[in-house]
Structure formats: C-alpha cells, structure tokens
Amino acid sequence: MEKSKVYFTNLRTKPGANLLDKLEKLMVKAGIKDIDFKDKFAAIKIHFGEIGNLAYIRPNYAAKVVEVIKELGGKPFLTDANTLYSGKRANALDHLDTAMKHGFNPMVVGCNVIIADGLKGTDYTEVEINQKHCKTAKIGTAITDADIIISMNHFKGHEMTGFGGALKNLGMGSGSRGGKLEMHSASQPKIQKDNCVACGMCIKNCAQEAISFDENKKATIDYEKCVGCGQCVAICQFDAAQVVWNESADTANEKIAEYAYAVVKDKPNFHINFIMNVSPNCDCWDNNDMAIVPDLGIAASFDPVALDKACVDMVNNAPKINGSILDDIHYHEGEDKFGHIHDNTNWKTGLDHGQEIGLGNEEYELINLI
C-alpha cells in the first residue's frame, strides 16, 4: 500500500508569513484545492471547547479555513454534535452559547454555526456501514447533509482513547447523543430514579414503548423491549436516563473509527490537526492541565488515520515539558507519552481498525514545509 502524505508546518514565523498565512499555505500544499467546492455545503467539524477549558483551537484559525473554502466557491459552516454528558454543550442552545462565548460566531469566523444533531441531540441520520461493531452509525443530520467534510482537530491526550485527534473528532464528535451512547456503552441505559421528575418525555419519545412509570411515578425501562438506542438519554434534561459506562477502551476506539468512516463515506474530506497546547485530557473537561510537550505545529492530510499516526509520533519524539503530568507519573524519555498517561488505554487499536476498514493508512510520508 502506498504511503499517505501528511503535510506539516512548524510555528516559526517572519514578517509577511504569520501563522494564518502558514495555515493557508499548508492547506494548499496538502491539496485542498483538488476538492470541488463550487456551491457545495462544507461542514467544518470542530470542537467549540467546554466552558473553563482554554485548550480549544482559536477561532482565528477557523476563520482562515472558512476564507479558503469561500474563495474556492464553497458554502462552509462550523459544526459539532451535542455531548452525551450533562454540561454546557448537551443541547443546542447551551452549545451555541458556548460556541459564541469562545469566539465561534459569524462576526469572527465568517460563517454560521450549526449544531449537527439538533436541539436535544435527537436529529440524526443512520448511515449504513456494516462494520464489525456497528451496522449503522447515528450521525448528526447537518453533517450527513453536507457535501464535503473538513475536520479541524485539537491534538491532545484523552482518558478513554489515549489521544484525541481526527478520528475522535470525526467519530465521537459527529455522533448524535444516541450514537455517542453506542460508542461509549455496550449495554442499555439505566434510570437514576432519584433524578426522575415524571415529566414523561422519555416515555413519549421511546420508539420501542420500553419506558413506563412505576408505582412511584418514576420512569422504568423494560429491557425486553429496549434496543439501547439512547433516545431517552438524549431527551432527558434531568440526568435521570443515564449511560451505563461499561465499554472497553479497545472496543470504543474501534467504534469511533467506524463512526469516522460513516462521516466521510463517499464524500470528499480533508483534515487538519493542531498540535498545540497538547493537554493530557479531553477538551470536554471544564479545565485543561498544562501541556505535556511544547507546541509543535499544524499538520494536514486527506487521510485521517495517517494524520493521527504522524501526530502521535511527533508528540512521542518531542521533549516533555518539565512540571507537567509526565513528571507526576515518572515518565522516562522514549516511552509512549499517551500510553503512559492513560495506561488503561491502547490508542493504537483505533488506528489499526481504521486501516482495516479502509478509513486510511498508518504508513505515511511526512512532508515538512518551510
């Protein structure tokens, strides 16, 4: 198999060539102009950051990507899907409010923001993929409706997958709340009855008629009827319908790869990783610990698997930052940084599975730009 090309630019600048200029040059060299954007809807999949976490990609970079796509005749929009956990991005209103507060608004980025799976995370399209774990993938409708997929990914650590990059942003990030449940969990949801207020929304929205009230006017699930679709988790605003967190990290990684495959299936796609502020954990937390390595640069590729693999290698080859979490856990140079921080995960399983299902290639050629 021919090696995939991954293009990289460092963060050194000079007059007349700032970081936004370098990002545009990187995109062009990596081949974004080979995509026919003319009058096409281009979904720019990005993470808007959780309130209190400052490691998310700066909106200035998103504005440059938007500008390039518009110049090529496309119709770009920024998008993300609602979170499975309760937080400031669990419904479209809070999610949009968070995006706007972090600078992802039309005045700054030059395009609109659309929450991919609707108000409550229930607006999704099932994409048929027939893979090892998932026969279909529940992807936010705004993403499935797009003609072109562009991902902008903050490359960092992740407590479940080892690291988060293109595959994590595409797969987990594009799944509806029910899709996220499928990736996180191998079982049906549960009802935390202390939180149930008897609003009846889960009953009304259960397509299987698997939920009813018990004698105490609390929701209860008939597991003979429940298919684990996650609709009750998505619809409940009181954290009564909950995920059973029992999926192994390896299986979750493979499911994420399958969902990423569903997102880009039969569509032109292009991916950009920002290897900056490489914090040890996910941007979904309301804080970000100090970076584990110095800021390295920006990488781009048509191949999300090769892109993530190149970024893992760059982080593992970079010197650690003294005082970071790597010192707390007695890391030694040359060890796998992400595997050392999250020693109950194996990040390679996601990339291996991505290669197996035809999402991309772990073998890459790294092309450094001046």
Rank of each mutant, 00 (worst) to 15 (best):
N195C: 03
N216S: 15
V197H: 03
C199I: 04
A219V: 00
T220E: 11
C196M: 08
I211W: 00
A207H: 12
A198T: 03
S212D: 09
Q192L: 13
N216T: 09
T220L: 02
I203F: 03
I203N: 02
C202R: 03
Q192M: 14
C199K: 00
C206D: 08
C199Y: 01
I191F: 07
C206R: 03
K218Q: 02
N205T: 13
N205W: 06
I211N: 03
K218C: 01
A198Y: 00
A219E: 01
N195L: 08
F213C: 06
M201K: 14
G200H: 09
C206P: 01
S212W: 06
D222N: 12
T220V: 13
F213Q: 12
A207I: 15
A207Q: 15
Q208L: 02
I211K: 00
K218H: 06
N195Q: 08
D214G: 11
N195V: 10
I191Q: 05
M201R: 12
D214T: 04
I203G: 07
F213E: 07
I191T: 04
N205P: 03
K193T: 04
K217F: 06
N205C: 06
A198W: 01
S212P: 04
K218N: 02
I211M: 02
D194C: 13
N216C: 11
K204D: 14
F213W: 07
D194E: 15
A219S: 09
A207W: 13
T220H: 05
I211V: 05
A198M: 01
V197S: 09
D214N: 11
E209P: 01
C206W: 01
I203M: 04
D214R: 11
K217M: 10
N205D: 13
I221Q: 00
E215S: 14
I203W: 02
A198S: 05
K204S: 12
K218Y: 05
D222C: 07
C206I: 04
M201V: 13
I221F: 07
N195H: 05
V197Y: 04
K218M: 07
D194A: 14
K204Q: 14
N195M: 08
N195K: 14
F213P: 00
N205E: 13
Q192A: 03
C196K: 07
S212K: 07
M201E: 09
C199A: 12
A207Y: 12
K204A: 09
Q192Y: 14
I191C: 04
N216L: 04
D222T: 11
Q192G: 02
I191E: 03
K193H: 09
A198Q: 02
M201D: 12
S212T: 10
G200D: 06
A207R: 14
I191K: 02
A210K: 03
S212G: 08
N216K: 14
V197C: 10
M201N: 13
E209W: 10
N205S: 15
A207M: 14
E215I: 15
V197A: 07
Q192F: 15
I191G: 00
K218F: 09
K193F: 03
S212E: 05
I211Q: 01
C196N: 00
K217C: 04
N216P: 10
C206M: 02
K193R: 11
E209D: 14
M201L: 15
K218D: 03
A210G: 00
M201F: 05
M201Q: 11
E209N: 15
I221E: 04
K204I: 15
C202M: 08
E209F: 06
K193W: 07
N216G: 10
N216R: 13
K217E: 12
E209M: 13
N195A: 06
C196F: 09
C206N: 05
